[in-house]
Amino acid sequence: METLAGVTRMRLVGGNLALDYLNTRTGPPVGAPDDDVLAGYPELVAWGSYAGGLSEPEAKVLRRLSHDDPDGAQVAFTRALRLRDDLDEVFRAVASDRSPSASVLARLRDDEADALRHARLDRGRTFSWTWRDDASLARPTRPVVHAAVQLLTTGALDRIKGCGGCRFLFYDESKNRSRRWCSMDDCGTSEKIRRYVAARRTRAAG
């Protein structure tokens, strides 16, 4: 189980906030995860700040709110984990060219509707949804839900892929859509080493 320090050691390689949220669980490409960065509500807030979904002032407010209302924080954390399970089902199905279940898509629709009820439409270079005035314990997952729906409705679904070396998902932005690894510095390097060792053994045996 990870600690708050473990949150800032995780790799943000998904290319999308929702995919990075799924990647808070680690493990092999198939099967159950073997570790989880999100051990509790404090880690959820720390991840939101680290991944860019929360500003530090917003995170400070949420830490105070969770201290004053631990039961409410636990409810919000439980819902955050349910959301992660739902997003995991959706995006792993998409990465495998399968259709997610209708029930999980309906929950995601409801989560997006709830997130936008707490949002503000702000103008920068373009208009965008923000949650600047949302000081509720559910705040960390609002931008995650919205990022997920935006990716599903406007992204290229064939660019959503699973890493060949671990359970991480990512959005492949390479020109020829040939990316296979979450990171060449980690899983990609490990595969190169494995192939090198196998080739040496083959030459030695010959």
Rank of each mutant, 00 (worst) to 15 (best):
V30Y: 08
W129D: 01
R107A: 08
K192F: 01
S99D: 14
D110Y: 04
D186V: 14
A138R: 14
T126H: 08
T202Y: 00
L151N: 03
G53P: 10
D186E: 15
L22T: 11
D114S: 14
E89Q: 13
E56Y: 05
R98Y: 00
K161R: 14
R200G: 13
W129L: 11
S183E: 11
V104D: 07
A135K: 10
V197P: 02
G6M: 11
R63Y: 11
K175H: 13
F168G: 07
R82I: 04
R194C: 01
T3K: 12
D71S: 12
G15L: 09
H118T: 10
L169G: 01
A156D: 14
L121K: 04
R195H: 07
T24D: 08
A205D: 13
K60R: 15
W131S: 06
A51N: 10
D35E: 14
T3N: 09
L22A: 08
P28W: 00
S136T: 15
L62R: 13
V104S: 05
D35V: 03
P57L: 07
V90K: 00
R132C: 05
A106P: 00
L108C: 10
L108K: 06
S136A: 15
D88V: 01
A199G: 02
L44R: 04
R179S: 06
R180C: 02
A76F: 07
T189P: 00
A113Q: 14
Q74K: 12
A76L: 08
S96L: 09
G124M: 01
R117P: 02
